[in-house]
Simulated scan of single mutants.
Amino acid sequence: MKGGDKVLANRLKILLAERDLSIKDTVNATGLSRNTLSNIVNNPFANIATDNVDKLCNYLEVAPKDFYDYFPWHFSMGYSLRKKILKYRYGEEFEVGYFLISASSGHKKLDTGFTIFLESSLPAKEDPSLTFSIKCPTHDNFNKLFNEMSPLFRHTLQEKVVEIMKDFCADLDKEYFFNSLYQTNKNIKVSVVMYGKYNDDELFNNSYKCKFQN
């Protein structure tokens, strides 16, 4: 996730929820503006002035190490289509590409490759769907890192994977023309599922609606 990758995130939203405090309560107690606090709450990776961190830590009675969530790994990700595109198969999982994740922290570096499989609904189905499974990793090191992350960092990484898979899906559409296959002008449901070391070790499952070119 380099180029926008963040390793330090504030936990203000969680800290307020744990104490049943509102933004209004915090504005009144700290003197910080509502806009400033809303930005911090809604954007965990926002830059916060040191004075403001001091005011918030003092108000919440926490140390800076408890105000922030830290994960010291940077991620970069990419994909490639299968060199020889296979004949389209309805209702059957088949290989369509590859997903690579590189992670670095200091002098440590880990690379994990995955295979991307596609399983689609049958053509007669009223609401067509595509499921992309990212699995069969070359190493289990990414699985270990993922399990070490806080929920916030996991969510951020999931969003990044899904955004990359949207690009992958658009490239694959140039080979298969999904709307034509399903003879539809409607949005198609796309699911992205990522697995760890084993196929029953599901790391996350995200879905979205996509409109493909005819």
Rank of each mutant, 00 (worst) to 15 (best):
F146E: 08
Y182K: 03
L110K: 10
L37I: 12
G78E: 07
G78M: 04
F45V: 01
F142K: 04
I134C: 00
L203N: 01
D5L: 02
K83T: 14
N52I: 07
D51N: 14
L152I: 15
L181N: 01
R19K: 15
S22K: 14
I85C: 10
N35V: 08
M165E: 05
T138V: 03
C136Q: 11
S150C: 10
V96K: 06
K108E: 14
K144T: 11
K87E: 14
V27L: 08
M1Q: 04
L122N: 09
K125M: 08
T26H: 02
D140K: 14
D167L: 07
T131Y: 02
E163L: 07
S120C: 01
K209Y: 11
T184R: 02
E95Y: 05
R82N: 13
F99Y: 15
C136Y: 06
P64D: 13
F168G: 02
I48Q: 06
H74T: 01
K24T: 13
M194V: 07
K84L: 09
G106A: 14
Y68G: 02
S129C: 00
L203V: 00
N185G: 12
V192C: 07
G106E: 14
T50W: 01
S133P: 00
H155K: 15
V162E: 04
K135E: 09
S150H: 11
F146V: 03
K109L: 04
Y90D: 05
R89D: 05
E175I: 06
V62F: 11
F67Y: 15
D66S: 14
F94D: 08
W73H: 12
S80C: 04
Y195H: 15
V41S: 08
S102V: 09
F67N: 10
A63Q: 14
L16S: 09
Y70L: 12
D69Y: 10
V192F: 06
N42V: 01
F99Q: 04
S33N: 05
S80F: 03
K24C: 00
D140N: 14
L100E: 05
N187A: 13
C57P: 06
K65S: 15
H139K: 11
N39W: 04
L21G: 01
F75D: 08
P72F: 08
L86G: 10
